[in-house]
Design a binder for these strands. Structure first.
Lengths: 201, 201, 201, 201
DNA sequence: TATGAATGAGCATTCATTCAT
DNA sequence: GATGAATGAATGCTCATTCAT
């Protein structure tokens, strides 16, 4: 309650919700728990969010927004396109591990289950993805003449990176594996995927 | 209720629970719902499982068991080691997409959140992983002289495949990407990871 | 809780709800209050009624049922038709005053506001009304050749009697008026309405 | 908010409350809803009314006031006493049907449930009633030598008219009954009650 | 082996009201 | 005169679980 006043209740609620969700999963986090964590009454939450859904949507929205900004910074780095992709991969893993709350919250986004206000959310998701796709395409304009080709590769990269981050966050990484080595190997692979043609299926 | 008796109530409960969880998420599935789906009373479930947690643990356990059997079959295929790895990758994606119930249920497994009976669960997880690691190691005994090297690569493969499956299951695959192409590219990549040395970081 | 067991919880719930509604109005009666009055837990109520609406519908339904039985008895009295109408009027007022719970609960029935399961309720309402209409018609077959004529008169009678009962129950009867005299005058009037042609409009 | 200022916030609040209550019932109308309808803040309502109860009391009070004025006008009509009673009956039904808000709001008045400020309310109720009683008495000074006799008859008239109005407003009028015919028959009856001695009980 | 009855704790949400500004 | 922020208490309802039979 003390340091809450400084940043505003709305922000405090979002922070508490994000942390609790990361720890417990979003279905297990109740408005009561959030209120208790913030130190305000339950009904005060409803002063800032019309309902639980919208609170969670806000969280997801902010997660994507936040990652988009990271993507934007990287897209402007004065390095080679391939190095930009490498930076993007590295940053994605870092982002996920440094801010598991943001990462997990973005992962909550499930088109099928997130019912009520998803239109704007969709747009945000796409924005980051499209920018990243462009970064991939720039690496090899000849190979990625069609945007679709770049998209498939980006899709794989994204899957790999998500697999890596979620494996680590979930504590499922085999304890006999060295974490740094694992991460670096993943990044190296994403660079490979972009820089070299796959032997094809 | 009629054909339930043949296979046993316990099995019927597990089946119903698995399907419901896939459709609704495990937090949204209640004992009531399971009982209704099975056609028995709620309290009958407690004859076979001391509580909801243990029911879910059983589900996870069975998921890993099932996948272990698949892994076992592949490990005995009379083909080259590399082809076995390819088969493993393909089968993993197929398994996840064909049986989202099993897949999702395995994914429920979070050491931190699954509190009560995790010891045996851990062992099951490892068993599949170790077998798969061996399959990878056999592809290039020289490169994978140390088991750890194989483990890192398998970790990446597993991450990539999980990323692929979960992306598709969650409906998050960019609609502009062709699904089959995406899957085949992923499999091709896993083969690449094993068969060719990465350019290093 | 002691005398509850004898009659069954369901009945106890209905009784408590009926009394509370009479005292407080149906919007002011909560499931919690009913539970407290009965001496059971809130969730136990949901064992017998899927929701509050259906509990109230049951109450209304029973009220109409109960009154229908009264009507039926009167319709079989071995007296003149006019005396039957008189008996009906007298019994209606008595019924309302003796069982304000039943009476008020029937009055809750508002086609517009009672949304969910009103079909059967409608039928019950009509049943009593149609029987009463027949009783009126029998008083003067010549005058009430068309059923519609009897219906208008019955409608007026019903309005008068409802006005009388609700005025008394609401405590709005002018304290300078003698209650018995008032009631008898009302009954006399209903007989008049049926037995003598109105001077017309 | 713009045209609100002209008439005053207090009036705007009362108007909004009256309309909402008619549409939703007084228990379902919240201060929030009223504020939203008016276009002011919730707490502004508390500037004019100490609490919700007193707001509703004011509404009831005004309803009776309004009807009293109608009664007053009729009491001065230059026609025969009996025609005045007829006019009163007709006007009462009209008033109820034209202004269901006023009518319903008056009907909210229940001495038992309206706890806090009922003294003045009582007085208002009586005022209309006494005036109407006098109108009845004037029709037949000989028969209504005692005021009490007139009061009983007026009580019946009032009950009948209330029954008629509330039946129609509640949508409970049998759909096979012609509304105009029903109303005219009711009015005719009130005239009868006053103009002709009932056969007695 | 199977169940129906019962419950306490919890859920998201809404309410009338207060108070500092 | 007017408001925004805040809250405690209440609402209908669902849940996992227990227990006597």
């Amino acid at each position: 309650m003390s340091d809450t006043n400084e940043t505003g209740l709305r922000t405090a609620i979002l922070d508490a919700a994000r942390h609790l969700i990361t720890r417990e999963g979003h279905r297990d986090v109740s408005m009561r728990m959030i209120a208790r964590a913030v130190g305000c009454s339950v009904s005060s939450i409803y002063l800032y969010f019309p309902n639980k859904d919208s609170l969670i949507h806000t969280l997801i929205y902010e997660g994507f927004e936040r990652w988009y900004e990271e993507t934007l910074v990287i897209s402007r780095l004065p390095v080679t396109p391939l190095e930009r992709v490498e930076a993007l991969s590295r940053r994605y893993i870092e982002f996920g591990l440094e801010h598991p709350e943001w990462y997990e919250v973005m992962y909550l986004f499930r088109p099928e289950r997130v019912a009520r206000y998803p239109k704007e959310l969709y747009r945000r998701t796409r924005r980051s993805l499209d920018l990243a796709t462009r970064l991939v395409a720039e690496c090899d304009p000849e190979r990625f003449r069609s945007e679709d080709d770049a998209r498939v590769v980006l899709g794989l990269i994204w899957s790999l990176l998500n697999g890596v981050v979620s494996t680590i966050l979930a504590g499922r990484l085999d304890s006999r594996i060295d974490r740094e080595e694992y991460i670096e190997a993943a990044i190296a692979h994403t660079v490979e995927m972009v820089g070299r043609r796959v032997a094809a299926a």
